[in-house]
Design a protein around this nucleic acid. Structure first.
Lengths: 211, 211
DNA sequence: CGTGCAAGCAAGTGGGTACTTGCATGCATT
DNA sequence: AATGCATGCAAGTACCCACTTGCTTGCACG
């Protein structure tokens, strides 16, 4: 019974918070947005801080970043798929992440939890590229750590700021993952989107397939 | 006369705003931080909104992003220097930028002004790489737009979030520009830091200039 | 039918916030 | 010495905020 109202409040809190931030998310706003009496809000969550903490927690648990599990036969496709879901997921929480990070100095605990996901994501990408290197597909001299760090920055930048500074993101949303991955692969020395055996031909006659 | 107080208020406003954002930057806080009577603040700027607008404007004009003017003889050094000053500049305004962008939906005008700088920066980098391509130094098939967009995301990510999520930025601050540029150049197909003929030697003796 | 519980409603409390007003003070210029 | 000006100070206004209290209403379950 109370659950339905509880969730309505949490959802409303998420909407209001992601637009106005912690200070701007007044209990009055949240309660009217949830179409619930303001007192109910205090009865169910105790205080504004507790409510918003609960709301952030529930949004973080829905935060499972994807992992790259697949094989090495088509790295570009593999990473592109992963990148697509990562971007999709980040975009879904863009507003909340933006506010939470901006207020990290005032409320650090929330921000820490939020970045856990990105940690595991970048680690998963690093591991995958290591495997590519061991298989001789990626350049062994490439600076993988830096490339991955830049790639993750690009993911965050795209998902958080595309709607605010669209001109900084030239490719349309649907093409973005493929293009990001293509550029990333060039940086780590995977010369094309096909597996090992065609590599030789690749190096000699520079390149021929461009997708 | 009034100028000294005016500047003290602006500086205090910048400090308070970059820590607490627009809503959190109360006139009381700013005035005590500036060691000035609260009334003086209203007498000099009219309102809190006007004061903060003036403060943002003064911080944006100090916002001239650097341009790459140099020649093509050593692209890596050229871009690295540029990248260093860009990063330095962004870091100097990191807190303000973070808050302003996070509050962009509520106060768009400020955010727009803030991103002008990044626009000109990325454009300048694109032009430079175009020149490299025309000179045959950069790969003519590389996706320059995407590479530059990712590079700029990396610049923003590093300057805005390094202090909050340090583990996402593996390289130490002082090495960051060189590593970012090196990875970027790989992505756009500039194979080493020197033009074609001395390339061989360069690869051996990694780096030598660190400023 | 009656008891209990979840929610709504009206009103209030104590404190903060932007901003105003009226007055006193010191300092420079004439 | 007198005038004007920039600033400080004390107080006040009107509103907003988080949170509380006391009461009513409706619904479920024995």
């Amino acid at each position: 019974m109370s659950d339905e109202i509880r969730n309505r409040i949490l959802a409303a809190a998420a909407r209001v918070y992601s637009q106005y931030g912690f200070r701007g998310a007044t209990t009055r706003l949240i309660s009217t947005e949830a179409d619930v009496n303001e007192v109910t809000l205090f009865r169910t969550f105790g205080s504004k801080a507790d409510l918003l903490a609960a709301m952030l927690a529930s949004n973080v648990t829905a935060n499972s970043a994807p992992t790259i599990t697949g094989d090495l036969s088509d790295p570009a496709a593999e990473i592109t798929a992963w990148c697509g879901t990562l971007l999709h997921h980040l975009r879904g929480h863009a507003h909340i992440i933006r506010k939470t990070i901006a207020e990290a100095e005032e409320r650090p605990e929330a921000a820490c939890a939020a970045c856990e996901g990105s940690n595991s994501a970048s680690e998963s990408l690093i591991l995958y590229v290591e495997r590519l290197r061991n298989a001789g597909i990626a350049d062994s001299e490439a600076d993988v750590a830096t490339a991955v760090s830049m790639f993750m920055s690009a993911m965050f930048g795209d998902s958080l700021y595309r709607d605010i500074i669209p001109q900084a993101f030239p490719q349309p949303v649907e093409d973005a993952p493929a293009k990001y991955v293509q550029t990333f692969l060039r940086a780590v020395g995977v010369r094309a989107s096909l597996p090992v055996r065609t590599r030789q031909a690749k190096v000699a006659g520079t390149r021929r397939r461009t997708r």
